[in-house]
C-alpha cells in the first residue's frame, strides 16, 4: 500500500480554507464525499466519529502534522485525504503548535493492519524533516502528490 494510493490525487487539498479542528475535519470529509470515496450520507457520522476520537486525545502529533482517524464500515481498507494549510490550523497539537499538514485516515473496521501500516507510512514521512518541509512549501496539488510519490520510492519499505 502506497501513500499515493491512500491519498488519491482528488483527495489532496493544497490549501484548506479551515483554521479550526472541526472545520478542517469537516472540509476533508466533504472532499472524500465529493470524490466518491465516501457516501455523502455518511459525512455527518464520519465527522462525529473523527471528533470523538479527538476527544480521547489529540491526533496533532507534533511537527505541524495531525493524523485524525476513524473507522467507517463504508470503506474498504484505508482511504485518506490530505489537507495542507499555509497559515496553519488550530488542532490542540501535543507541541501546542498549529498544524500545516493534515493526514485524515478512514479505515474499515476490520482493517487493523492496514491502518497501522498507513500510520507507519505517515510517521516515517513525518520523521523525515525534508519531506515535511517540502510538503509545507509545495506550490500546489501536483507538487504534493509528487512528494507523496517520492516518499513511496525513498522511504524504507514495510
Amino acid at each position: 500500500m502506497k501513500l499515493t494510493e491512500i491519498f488519491a490525487e482528488e483527495n489532496v487539498v493544497p490549501d484548506v480554507a479551515a483554521t479550526q479542528k472541526r472545520e478542517v475535519i469537516t472540509e476533508l470529509v466533504n472532499v472524500l464525499c465529493e470524490s466518491g470515496a465516501v457516501a455523502p450520507s455518511a459525512a455527518k457520522g464520519l465527522v462525529r466519529a473523527l471528533m470523538r476520537r479527538e476527544e480521547l486525545g489529540t491526533t496533532g502529533i507534533g511537527r505541524g502534522v495531525a493524523v485524525p482517524h476513524a473507522k467507517h464500515s463504508g470503506v474498504k481498507g484505508v482511504i485518506g485525504a490530505l489537507g495542507r494549510s499555509e497559515r496553519g490550523v488550530e488542532f490542540d497539537a501535543l507541541d501546542g503548535q498549529p498544524v500545516h499538514l493534515i493526514f485524515l485516515l478512514v479505515s474499515a473496521p476490520d482493517a487493523v493492519e492496514a491502518h497501522l501500516e498507513a500510520m507507519k507510512k505517515v510517521t516515517l514521512l513525518l520523521r523525515n524533516g525534508d519531506f515535511c518541509t517540502f510538503m509545507k512549501r509545495a506550490k500546489g496539488r501536483a507538487e504534493l502528490v509528487e512528494l507523496l510519490a517520492e516518499a513511496d520510492d525513498r522511504l524504507p519499505p514495510a
Binding site: 507534533g62 501535543l94 487493523v112 497501522l116 500510520m119 507507519k120 516515517l124 520523521r127
Partner: peptide
C-alpha cells in the same frame, strides 16, 4: 510516540 508508530506493530 512517532518512533513507536514507525514500527507499525500489528497484533
Amino acid at each position: 510516540v512517532l518512533d513507536i508508530l514507525t514500527l507499525g506493530a500489528a497484533p
